[in-house]
Design a protein around this nucleic acid. Sequence first.
DNA 1: CTATTCATTTCCACTCAGTGGAAGCCGAGA
DNA 2: TCTCGGCTTCCACTGAGTGGAAATGAATAG
Lengths: 262, 262
Amino acid sequence: MAGGSRESGRTVTSRVLAILEAFEQSRTALSLTQISEGSGLPLSTTHRLVAELTDWGFLSRGANGRYQLGIRLWELAQNAGRQLREAARPFVQDLFSLTGETSQLAVREGHEVLYIERIYGTKRVPRASRVGGRLPMHATAVGKVILAYEEEWVRTAYLNRQLERPTAHTHIVPGRLAEELDQIREQGYATTLEEVRLGSCSIAVPVFHTGRIGAGLGLVLLTSQAATMTRHLPVLRGVSAHIERATAHIPLESLLGSHALR
Amino acid sequence: MAGGSRESGRTVTSRVLAILEAFEQSRTALSLTQISEGSGLPLSTTHRLVAELTDWGFLSRGANGRYQLGIRLWELAQNAGRQLREAARPFVQDLFSLTGETSQLAVREGHEVLYIERIYGTKRVPRASRVGGRLPMHATAVGKVILAYEEEWVRTAYLNRQLERPTAHTHIVPGRLAEELDQIREQGYATTLEEVRLGSCSIAVPVFHTGRIGAGLGLVLLTSQAATMTRHLPVLRGVSAHIERATAHIPLESLLGSHALR
DNA sequence: CTATTCATTTCCACTCAGTGGAAGCCGAGA
DNA sequence: TCTCGGCTTCCACTGAGTGGAAATGAATAG
């Protein structure tokens, strides 16, 4: 396993995966040439591999000749972390039903939070996150609450970097952030106010798993609701406790902390 | 492209994909040996490829040494059909909020319905389908409604096979099914009564896209509700119309009908 | 503590699948 | 008709991939 392999050149496997990952950057369908450029592979090689991936349904080709990730890939990937998501989902749904606010569940992946569940209606949607999407930890409530309860070395490593600043309200001074995390751990919840996107604020509580922090459960609200956000705390805590119970028996080592801190 | 390639042996790509697909059969984590058997590859080959997939996060290894599909794969695959799912999701959420019943959206994939959205709370859950899961079309309301509006040759091809029978209530006589499909097209909705699983019934309406049938939108209820199911029709139709409007601009060729009828 | 068994990991000489430059093709526009 | 850009096909070369076999490790019994 040794060091990084990502040099995107040696093995066939790496070429195949590089092709798939090329689709993460752009949200539109890609032409063969674009895939070739995005993956750094010669055109003819790309052509051959793409054709085979398409055969298997891992890529699909639209009417315009462009390619997209295929439904087979999606279908297959639904099995990843399925136990966890299926166990947690109805509770997140309950959280939404009880609050009427955008509800989300996220875990840490490296230096970011990865949203694994997100429920919202057609009404208010100040969306920044999405299921399967990532955001920096220090800009989100779920991220901060996870970071706050993480082991010390994770916190330290995290703060010891250049921190992104999505909006002018994002806290990026390491010292003050460290204090904020301490306070979060004391009070048992985290909040943000327009730190990832203007117009929205958020609040989140921790979800524990086998004694360690496992995930963050939170709500996103319009900034106008910021003052009264904390009224949702009882519900958040109740739902969190339910999720903890429902997922206690599920082995997560494979999901969490696997990618340490890249 | 020519004929089928699935012979699971020739190319490296096929070996890699065979390994990934090995995880679809079993819901538990797999040992190396199991993956080797499941994919039909020699152990040492499996070992090498699995190691590389793990490096990339497409597989992950639990504490017990067993492998599972990795979160990276899931994350990547969230981009497949994302436009469609993100557009439709809040409306399915609304359907759930308005009815309080398990709400689902499904498309046709070959001879089966593939559930792409499913929303339910912690209460009643007579679950048979799941997001990313498949069921035979003739046993489900969403499936029947899709089949009913499909082009003639699709219907014919479908009925011209041995039809599975999950429960004793499943309709599997081709002639009678054809009649039922005609009736569904006339009345504009389909129902089932314990046809996929005892204890539950369902009702579904069509969702059109560029003039053709695109998906099925439905509810699953307890059998005790069967008699009054149709009271949800107005809501179902309203939500369906909203989904049609919201997805009209999204190109779907790449999703639907791609895998004709395997 | 040793023997046995079964799963995983490592090794390495052989060879065929994969490669990619180049040429051919095709459709759109001038 | 000619041109251009992107896609597809071809094919001789070669090193990435292969897989049998042996080493290692973990688990259990004797």
